Amino acid sequence: MDNSETHNQRIATMTFTSVYPLYLKKVEKKGRTKEELDQVIAWLTNFDEQKLQELIEENATFEKFFQQASLNPNAHLITGVICGYRVEDIENPLTQQVRYLDKLVDELAKGRKMEKILRGT
């Protein structure tokens, strides 16, 4: 993963709306549900279903998405490798938050138990 400012800016301007269907396809392909995906997103961001839908409809960028999020206090417990880099070592806060979400979606798709994905909360 490129840690350059260009890369971080590209992530900031990417829309959640464009990525959400890819997340959904990934988890459904592995036998998980939209409800489980939304539960994982809600755990990380504290968004309810209505707020999540609003952000999707307004085509919110990841920057706006995470500005409005109230990140779970246990988000720092999300560790591991995504795209060849350790999530906990990513320096740019927004890039790290997006990678937290990517990591949670990966764990869901890999069949990890929900209590483990949600870090026991």
Rank of each mutant, 00 (worst) to 15 (best):
V40R: 01
V40W: 00
V40I: 10
I41Y: 02
I41H: 00
I41G: 00
A42W: 02
A42T: 11
A42L: 04
W43S: 05
L44R: 03
T45N: 05
T45E: 07
N46V: 02
F47K: 00
F47H: 04
F47S: 01
E49M: 01
Q50T: 08
Q50A: 14
L52C: 02
Q53R: 09
Q53H: 05
Q53F: 02
Q53C: 00
Q53D: 10
E54A: 04
E54G: 00
E54N: 14
L55E: 06
I56N: 03
I56E: 03
E57R: 09
E58T: 10
E58I: 08
E58K: 15
N59E: 14
N59F: 08
N59H: 10
N59I: 03
N59S: 10
N59P: 01
N59M: 04
A60Q: 03
A60M: 08
A60R: 08
T61E: 02
F62E: 04
E63C: 06
E63N: 10
E63I: 04
K64H: 11
K64L: 13
F65C: 07
F65R: 03
F66Q: 06
F66C: 07
F66V: 05
Q67F: 12
Q68D: 15
Q68S: 11
A69R: 00
A69P: 00
A69G: 02
A69E: 00
A69L: 00
A69V: 01
S70C: 03
S70A: 12
L71M: 14
L71R: 00
N72K: 04
N74L: 14
N74V: 06
A75T: 08
A75Q: 11
A75L: 05
L77I: 04
L77R: 14
I78Q: 06
T79I: 11
T79P: 00
T79L: 12
G80F: 08
V81R: 05
I82H: 12
I82T: 12
I82M: 11
I82W: 13
C83L: 14
C83N: 13
C83Y: 13
G84A: 05
G84F: 06
G84Q: 04
G84C: 02
Y85T: 13
Y85K: 14
R86T: 15
R86G: 07
V87L: 11
E88A: 13
E88N: 12
D89C: 05
D89V: 04
I90T: 15
I90D: 07
N92A: 12
N92M: 05
P93D: 12
P93I: 13
L94R: 08
L94F: 10
T95C: 12
Q96W: 10
Q96L: 12
Q97L: 06
V98I: 14
V98P: 09
R99W: 15
R99S: 13
Y100N: 01
